[in-house]
């Protein structure tokens, strides 16, 4: 086993300090070390998008980063999207209303990808939405209801 490294990281506004092995993937760090199991792990080679998180505000695959790389950085996971435990983020609400999920496994990755997308582009075209979610796989919905949910969130956010 190689030397342990200290990771100081802010996640969803909360500070954490842990000792980690360099080879620990950020996705496993979130789930196994911190219990933030909202971030899902699908393929572990960057194809499915389920593990997407915000790294300094920018969507990234947490399975393609090491936990040590989070040292000194700010992360947001799906748990950090809604303002409180009792309400949904407007995009989560739109997913709920437009049937944007079935089994829900891919949903955290979609949400985390789409929240900054809508902040940057509040009135996207359908093509822009489909390009934005091109890096997220969903095996249930056929994507149509996800696109509908994004349109609904954009409409409500006007």
């Amino acid at each position: 086993m190689s030397e342990l490294h200290t990771v100081n990281v802010t996640i969803n506004g909360k500070k954490y300090e842990r000792q980690v092995e360099p080879r620990l993937l950020l996705s496993d760090f979130l789930r196994h070390e911190l219990g933030l199991s909202g971030t899902h792990v699908g393929c572990e080679h960057g194809v499915c998008g389920a593990c997407t998180i915000l790294y300094d505000g920018v969507p990234a695959r947490s399975c393609l980063m090491f936990a040590v790389q989070a040292n000194g950085h700010t992360l947001t996971t799906v748990e950090g999207l809604a303002k409180s435990q009792t309400e949904l983020h407007p995009l989560q609400q739109a997913f709920h209303e437009a049937h944007g999920l079935q089994c829900g496994f891919c949903t955290p990755g979609f949400l985390v990808t789409l929240v900054p997308f809508l902040e940057e582009n509040p009135r996207p075209t359908e093509e822009e939405i489909r390009e934005a979610i091109s890096g997220n796989l969903c095996r249930c919905t056929g994507y149509q209801h996800i696109v509908d949910a994004v349109k609904l969130a954009a409409e409500k956010g006007k």
Binding site: G46, G49, R61, T113
Partner: peptide, 12 residues
């Protein structure tokens, strides 16, 4: 560039 993998990958 838009053909290089996916937006999340291009961010890194």
């Amino acid at each position: 560039m838009p053909f290089v993998a996916h937006p999340q990958i291009r961010n890194r």
